[in-house]
């Protein structure tokens, strides 16, 4: 057990915040400005895996680790498509996921945006034209932005979201 008294006497264990990625910070700040302007402070994202190899999920999850901490830029990952502004789709769409994917999309309120993350989601990748997949996400519902990569890095996903916000801002 940690002794409560020793906590007062010892030096604080909190480490200084490093700024390890200037690029991520810059993208994040811009993204925050755009989200504030276009979506009124918060962008709700629902992640949907339609058949990825789980590497993309890992990178999307990494956006929440202390290095990126994407929530400070106004991004929240929400539990239900009904709460979401953006559907972040990973993986080629498999036959087994097609119905569930469509239901998820239909459950989102409009206006809604769809972002395909990773090569497989963009056009089916190495699975294109095989028996098990329909192809990229755009085979099932309209896609607003594609972020290529195998998988794209967290920084690339942030940059993609910034591009989406710029696009949405122009439309509005």
């Amino acid at each position: 057990m940690v002794n409560a008294l020793s906590c007062f006497l010892k030096k604080k264990v909190t480490e200084d915040l490093m700024v390890p990625d200037e690029d991520v910070e810059r993208t994040g700040r811009e993204l925050k400005q755009q989200i504030d302007a276009v979506f009124g402070r918060s962008l709700a994202i629902r992640e949907l895996d339609t058949g990825s190899d789980n590497a993309t999920e890992i990178e999307v999850n990494n956006l929440s680790n202390p290095y990126y901490d994407a929530e400070r830029f106004g991004i929240t990952f929400v539990a239900s498509p009904r709460h979401a502004d953006v559907l972040l789709v990973t993986g080629a769409v498999t036959h087994n996921m097609a119905i569930a994917a469509k239901k998820t999309y239909d459950a989102m309120p409009s206006p809604k945006y769809v972002v395909a993350v990773g090569d497989d989601a963009c056009d089916g990748g190495i699975f294109k034209g095989t028996y098990a997949v329909l192809g990229g996400v755009d085979k099932v519902f309209p896609v607003d932005l594609k972020i290529p990569g195998n998988p794209p890095t967290p920084a690339a996903i942030l940059t993609g979201l910034l591009a989406l916000m710029n696009k949405a801002g122009k439309k509005a």
Partner: peptide, 11 residues
């Protein structure tokens, strides 16, 4: 399971 069946072996 098998929602993500992508046909790896056939591929």
């Amino acid at each position: 399971m098998f929602y993500k069946h992508r046909g790896i072996e056939k591929l």
